[in-house]
């Protein structure tokens, strides 16, 4: 997605401006749409594993049911992503990213951690956030939006905190600044 933006700038910019950087830019990978997930941008190949979700799942299906199963988790993630891409504190970070993929992988990640019959197919937290320059305050803003989304969809506060306790340590991988 970032590549797309950069490419757009290059098309628009006059050629001489680019002469210096040309060598670097030629090596940028081309934008390829995913065939497996229509509407998503293909990402660099990576090893798929549930371990990439960054937390061990809850035992049993109690948490999955408390969150309303697939439907509940999907609704929470939709509200969550709608909120973060509109939150002036952090919206900028999501602007040039593939939000279709983000919604799908978040639903998988939460579903997997909550003990649902879901596998996580996304990247691990460290590599997927490595280049985003995220600060601690961004993490706080993101968590707050997740709390509000969970509340909006009727997840009891204690259950919210149980999920957040699984996500909280990921700050070490996500925050790079």
């Amino acid at each position: 997605m970032r590549a797309l933006l950069i490419a757009a700038v290059f098309i628009a910019a006059p050629a001489p401006l680019l002469a210096q950087e040309a060598e670097d830019d030629l090596s940028l990978p081309p934008i390829v749409m995913s065939t497996e997930f229509p509407g998503e941008v293909e990402v660099e190949p990576y090893q798929r594993s549930n371990a990439n979700a960054g937390a061990t799942p809850f035992e049993g299906t109690e948490m999955w049911e408390t969150f309303g199963g697939a439907e509940g988790v999907s609704a929470i993630v939709e509200t969550f992503v709608e909120r973060i891409v509109a939150d002036p504190r952090i919206a900028e970070i999501f602007m040039a990213q593939d939000q279709v993929r983000l919604r799908r992988t978040l639903k998988e990640q939460f579903g997997y951690i909550l003990g649902g019959p879901v596998a996580y197919s996304g990247r691990d937290m460290r590599s997927s956030h490595a280049d985003l320059g995220i600060q601690s305050a961004d993490m706080g803003a993101l968590v707050e939006n997740l709390q509000i989304a969970m509340s909006e969809h009727g997840v009891p506060f204690r259950a919210q905190n149980r999920l957040l306790a699984k996500l909280a340590p990921m700050r070490r991988d996500v925050v790079t600044r």
Binding site: S136, A137, D138, G140, A141, V143, E144
Partner: peptide
């Protein structure tokens, strides 16, 4: 620096 990063 920025403000307000912690949770309530």
């Amino acid at each position: 620096s920025r403000t307000g990063g912690k949770l309530i």
